[in-house]
């Protein structure tokens, strides 16, 4: 679960503010251009309005359905296997050096 830091009073409202949408975007590591924020907020609210129908449903005592699997999921032996080798994994790296993924410096 993502831990929220935006105003909980606004959550659940179908009139979500642009500031809230920006906060959610930050949580999702997405940026929204100033020129797009009104459109994105409008579409966000349209989608939330679609969810209003669920508030009328009595779900007291209903066990949430996480997935449709009816049987317990099997476990397999914890054994080291090589499904994809290092070269295969590294071939798509945007930047790498000596078999490590390169990212911008995080510690000065």
């Amino acid at each position: 679960m993502i831990v929220s830091h935006f105003n909980p009073d606004l959550a659940g409202s179908t009139v979500t503010q642009t500031t809230t949408v920006r906060d959610v975007a930050e949580l999702a590591r997405l940026t929204i251009a100033d020129s797009d924020i009104d459109k994105v907020t409008k579409e966000f609210n349209q989608t939330l309005a679609l969810f209003e129908a669920l508030t009328m449903v009595d779900t007291n005592g209903v066990n949430p359905m996480v997935n449709p699997c009816t049987e317990s999921q099997p476990l397999r032996t914890d054994r080291v296997e090589t499904l994809v080798d290092r070269a295969g994994l590294m071939q798509n790296a945007p930047a790498s050096e000596q078999n490590y993924f390169l990212v911008p410096r995080v510690i000065d």
Partner: peptide
């Protein structure tokens, strides 16, 4: 658009109202 909606419904303040509720309706 969908990532934004998903991040919102999974956030602590919305989880029960949206995500949990949807999973319950899914059961029904």
């Amino acid at each position: 658009r969908r990532i934004l909606v998903g991040a919102f419904t999974l956030s602590a303040a919305s989880y029960d109202e949206y995500f949990m509720k949807a999973q319950q309706v899914r059961r029904l």
